[in-house]
């Protein structure tokens, strides 16, 4: 893939132009579009991607895109985005055909649901699995690692640097937060 992947352990979750600019101003080279209308932000996002910023999109939550091949082709070919997140295995399989990195979202709400999600991992293996809520990762990492070695991202309810640190300490490769304070804390830590 010629698009950039992730660097470091913090992925700012943005939802509008203001939060996108805040993340970029802090020096982040990667963002996750987690909410809001992708089409309203298409200009700034495409511009960022052209400058080498890695853009990831949560296909289950953003507005303005159909969950189909035409939307994936637009993200990959027209916009040069780096990857997509979804709970839907068929959508991720399709995304890998467009050479998008695939991040499979798995809800960690109870043991039954988590195990069902982990047993539905797509082939080819996803770039990462995104566990939501990320704050549950310290509790559920043993279950995850008993089933897969895929890198784990934590998303959802990560609202302080302490929580983000605990999730990383539990073995997550990356955390995503929508909080500017958390971005600030992590923008000071050197990229590993």
């Amino acid at each position: 893939m010629r698009t950039p992947g992730v660097l470091g352990v913090m992925l700012p979750a943005v939802r509008d132009g203001a939060s996108l600019n805040q993340a970029l101003d802090l020096g982040y080279r990667q963002v996750l579009l987690e909410r809001g209308s992708l089409l309203a932000l298409v200009g700034p996002l495409a511009g960022a991607a052209r400058r080498g910023i890695a853009i990831f999109v949560n296909l289950d939550a953003v507005e303005g895109l159909a969950p189909d091949s035409a939307a994936l082709a637009f993200l990959a070919t027209d916009l040069g985005f780096s990857g997509v997140l979804s709970v839907k295995p068929h959508l991720l399989k399709d995304a890998s055909r467009f050479r998008l990195r695939t991040i499979q979202r798995i809800h960690a709400l109870d043991s039954t649901g988590l195990e069902t999600g982990l047993h539905s991992l797509v082939s080819p293996s996803p770039y990462a699995i995104a566990i939501a809520p990320g704050v549950a990762i310290p509790e559920v990492m043993p279950i995850i690692r008993s089933i897969t070695d895929t890198p784990v991202w934590g998303t959802g309810f990560i609202s302080s640097a302490e929580q983000a640190g605990a999730v990383l300490h539990a073995g997550a490769a990356l955390v995503s937060s929508a909080r500017l304070e958390v971005w600030r804390e992590f923008s000071r830590t050197p990229v590993s």
Binding site: E34, R35, A61, H107, L109, A132, G156, F157, A178
Partner: peptide, 8 residues
């Protein structure tokens, strides 16, 4: 009430 995402 499924709490997977504070934004939701």
């Amino acid at each position: 009430l499924l709490l997977y995402d504070d934004l939701a």
